[in-house]
Design a protein around this nucleic acid. Structure first.
Lengths: 196, 196
DNA sequence: CATAAAAGATACCGCTTAGTATTTTTGTAA
DNA sequence: TTACAAAAATACTAAGCGGTATCTTTTATG
């Protein structure tokens, strides 16, 4: 990897961390260049402006993480209900990258940027759509293999599950404790069992 | 009502609207005094600083709305499952105050302020706790009247329901359409039916 | 090794921010 | 009417913001 590319990625990674912790609007470019040890000239060599960098973060950092952690675990799994529960358990309880006190990066971005910048909304919407679609497909396949009742509406279920995840992330943030996740996970299991 | 008190409340109401639409951090005091037609001197006569005003908004504006719209509809209802569904339907589809494109004010505040100001977290936590508690009690009562299965965990269910609500609000914001609410509501109904 | 372009450093600009200090107006009770 | 405090207006500050212009260093290539 070229040095310039390394500098760029370094900015993206560090900035993403800062934004995940502090929020986008309250993370200043001066904050970013201070923690990356990169000067303003270097920053503006690589990015046209702040939003340009923000979009790069979503596309180049958040998206791959999302696909790897949220989408892939649902693919090529035989029993979708187990896969969904395991995914949620993993994301909430075990994932070392996602921290309870900072919530869900995608949800954070959505809430903060949606009123301001349509480009963010667009990309984030594509991201969530991919998740919903994958989960929906996974449930449909599960029906064929008789892991899931035939009268279950796959898309409806996917949206219901995703909503719960986003919501409990926000609640965990408020409580600042993973304990808040446990009753949610238990009830998620109950709910998923009713779909068998 | 004294004129001074009217000025104060006017600031709180207008500021709340602005913050609901734009977010707390990105709503400046200059924005607020511009839309309220109140001068900076008047603003700082009534509030020590911005966060002081923010807390007053949560306590004096958000809290009463929350109790009226979220908590009261669950009280003195015989069938908690119907009450919960009707509440959610009402909040998402009919409530004239809550707008799909701006999400849930309480959730917005939570996400934005939790990393910064513990006072906000505390008040917001009390708010949600009140909701959870009311819903939990309502379900417990429903058990006694045989509207709800006896093996249902009331608190677990409440947290599950609340999470879904917060999550779908964020999703609605992203999609910018109430259509996103419909599959959620359908599946919520399915879920609630399994608790009978 | 020369050279040019890529990459990065430095200083600064115009503007906005939250907050303060000071003055002026308004309401009310004696 | 006067006295005085409550309420509001005005002008200002210091710091922070995103962004630009300009200069210097590094790197790749003939």
């Amino acid at each position: 990897m070229k040095k310039a590319e390394a500098t760029r990625l370094n900015i993206l990674h560090k900035a993403f961390e800062l934004i995940y912790v502090k929020g986008y609007q309250t993370t200043s470019i001066d904050d970013i260049i201070a923690t990356t040890q990169v000067t303003k000239g270097a920053f503006y060599y690589h990015f046209k402006n702040k939003d340009n960098m923000g979009l790069a973060i979503v596309n180049e950092i958040l998206k791959p993480i999302f696909v790897n952690s949220f989408v892939k675990p649902l693919q090529n799994e035989k029993n979708p209900l187990d896969a969904i529960y395991n995914l949620m358990y993993n994301l909430l309880m075990e994932n070392e990258f996602l921290k309870v006190e900072f919530g869900c990066p995608a949800a954070n971005f959505t809430q903060e940027m949606t009123p301001w910048n349509v480009h963010f909304s667009k990309v984030l919407n594509e991201l969530t759509k991919e998740w919903i679609e994958t989960m929906t497909y996974s449930i449909e396949e599960g029906k064929k293999r008789e892991f899931v009742r035939n009268d279950v509406n796959a898309r409806q279920t996917s949206m219901f599950v995703m909503s719960g995840y986003w919501g409990i992330r926000n609640f965990g943030k408020l409580e600042n404790s993973k304990k808040a996740y446990l009753p949610y996970l238990k009830e998620l299991k109950n709910y998923l069992n009713t779909l068998k």
